[in-house]
Design a binder for these strands. Structure first.
Lengths: 338, 338
DNA sequence: AACATAATCCGAAACGTTTTGGAAACAATG
DNA sequence: CATTGTTTCCAAAACGTTTCGGATTATGTT
């Protein structure tokens, strides 16, 4: 491996000068800088990150903490988008991204602190952890900077990026209302997570705009689970046969609802309109194709990385960012016909 | 940060001894070792990987080179599985995995060599690159050890893991034959990539077993592309209306075929049976749910990491591994009714 | 007791960078 | 000429670990 020393020898200068020339300091003559650069190029020099990291005491490594999914499930495409977003920003900024999958880590009995200190992680982004995941708490308490996706930290030092969940839900309801629906049920994830609360807010706002009374009995929790959503929506539809549309807080739950509807013999979308949330890849492929609220997951990851890395570099930076989304109308919604 | 020096001071020994105690060398008294371990634990010591890496001259980092997908598509779940498999093995073996997404890298004008040398990558796993991707060539020429997933290297130094593609295709055809199909078309990816050739082999074998003549006109190439598969299968079905089943070399192409069938007014699966390949998450969610050949993508990633890391550690290891798959019968196949 | 062997420990060098504090050379100013 | 300032360079220390070669002590053998 060719080192800075070799360059120094070849260019007949000191290692200091090579280092400073290559790193763009201005206390080196432009002529020598060019000579050094040429030599470096010719010798195919590339700096040893490890050495650099050691002396600067920065690992230039961030962690992306996600819930591991095994076996694979539709949510993977969400995660994958976020990964891409984080990874691209990080690599452009000369950071390494390493992946922590929460279940794997826990299975190995690692605490969050261990995870970070073993790898000298400088900062962490979390995505897709359950709102009561122990790691979230530990992240907030930890001294390593972090940014949460879809989870507002409780203290002020943590950053946060999310989609505009309330607006998305409102759009979804508006769309249903505009089609003529008045009996719109809501399958929410839970009643604690940030996104659930926001989407509930949007749902209520949407109803209010249309002067439809909110009825808490027409809201069920399915914990972002497809089976659960199927079961809950069967109960719901049997109890309130007047329901003509159901809005779901995730595409996965919407899958469950569509399955339920089929089991109950409803014609989709005519006898029941369904709206999802997330725009997972899968939602394009169901029949009928799912109307859903698109979230720019890549952008969320990208932005999270930006906030984190800015912070690590001591730059002034925003601490909370909301990424706009948009309703994607497909085939699972139409005017009520019943 | 607490270093080995601090431990040395606290335990009243030299740094050498701390290092050797913690790393399990046998020239340190068990009593002192225990004392040192206790102190280290109490002081929450965790070794500085960067320093270790510098002195051992090993980055303990492997790269996973995949094709980047943006916008997201169904194949992401494949990639995600592989990532999980690689990542888990790597992290257990104390390696870092970093992700290279080929399009991003190319957009930045990076050569494969740069990618590796910038990060001091010790070895690389590739997955999902097109068989004519320039990086594949560069990988083989490079001196950094690599293992290909689904791509048999030309020279002997590269390792290789794949699924049993021929067997999978054969199973698929057998299944169709057992249902009573005799007119079985094949939408293949291309006629060059390893997996395409293997699946073609399996397809032919399957036909031969059933004493069905192979007809090359009933094979079309769709380059693993959904639209393409849709178009090709429309041509195919119009030209050969006697076809009652089509086997596809990927689930994505099977989606295209199902769409084509619907456009042509076929009743699925009664009037046309469709079999895919991959078992992407999406294939559970189509109507009818897709019969497909399952590939253990997680295992493939895991095994690739195992081969690579064994090699990096100088261990004796296999150089090519075939992971078994299995046919997953769902709802897109049934006896021919036409 | 004398010696050989084994067990246990340690000092110092090394890994490839960055950075500090200053030196040397030269130019500009009084 | 003496002084000050500027430009350009460099020696050496530092980062936290591993490892080489040897030193010291304890144990066993005659």
């Amino acid at each position: 491996m060719v080192t800075i020393k070799d360059i120094a020898k070849a260019a007949n200068v000191s290692v200091t000068t090579v280092s400073r020339a290559l790193n763009g300091y201005d206390d080196v003559n432009e002529k020598t800088r060019q000579r050094i650069k040429d030599v470096a190029e010719k010798m195919q020099y590339s700096p040893n990150m490890t050495a650099r990291r050691l002396v600067t005491n920065k690992s230039s490594t961030i962690g992306l903490l996600t819930s591991s999914s095994f076996p694979s499930n539709p949510k993977d495409t969400f995660t994958m988008d976020v990964i891409s977003g984080v990874n691209e920003y990080a690599s452009c900024a000369d950071y390494d991204m390493i992946l922590f999958q929460s279940e794997f880590a826990k299975r190995q009995g690692k605490t969050y602190h261990q995870l970070c200190s073993e790898r000298q992680i400088e900062g962490v982004i979390s995505q897709g952890l359950a709102h009561d995941d122990a790691f979230l708490q530990q992240m907030e308490e930890s001294s390593v900077p972090c940014v949460f996706i879809d989870h507002p930290g409780e203290n002020e030092t943590t950053s946060f990026v999310s989609a505009d969940n309330a607006a998305g839900a409102r759009e979804a309801v508006r769309h249903l209302v505009s089609l003529g629906h008045r009996e719109i049920a809501f399958i929410n994830g839970d009643d604690e997570a940030y996104i659930s609360l926001e989407r509930m807010k949007g749902y209520k706002e949407g109803l209010q705009e249309a002067e439809i009374a909110f009825n808490e009995k027409k809201v069920r929790l399915a914990y972002f689970n497809e089976e659960e959503a199927c079961a809950r929506s069967i109960e719901l539809l049997e109890e309130f046969p007047e329901i003509t549309a159901v809005f779901c807080s995730s595409d996965l739950m919407a899958m469950g609802v569509m399955r339920a509807a089929q089991q109950l013999g409803y014609e989709l979308p005519d006898e029941l309109s369904v709206v999802g949330y997330d725009n997972l890849v899968i939602s394009q492929y169901t029949t009928p194709a799912l109307t859903t609220v698109h979230q720019n997951k890549y952008k969320m990851g990208n932005t999270a990385a930006e906030l984190l890395i800015n912070r690590l570099q001591g730059k002034e930076t925003k601490t909370r960012v909301i990424i706009p989304g948009s309703l994607l109308v497909r085939k699972s919604t139409c005017p009520p016909r019943r």
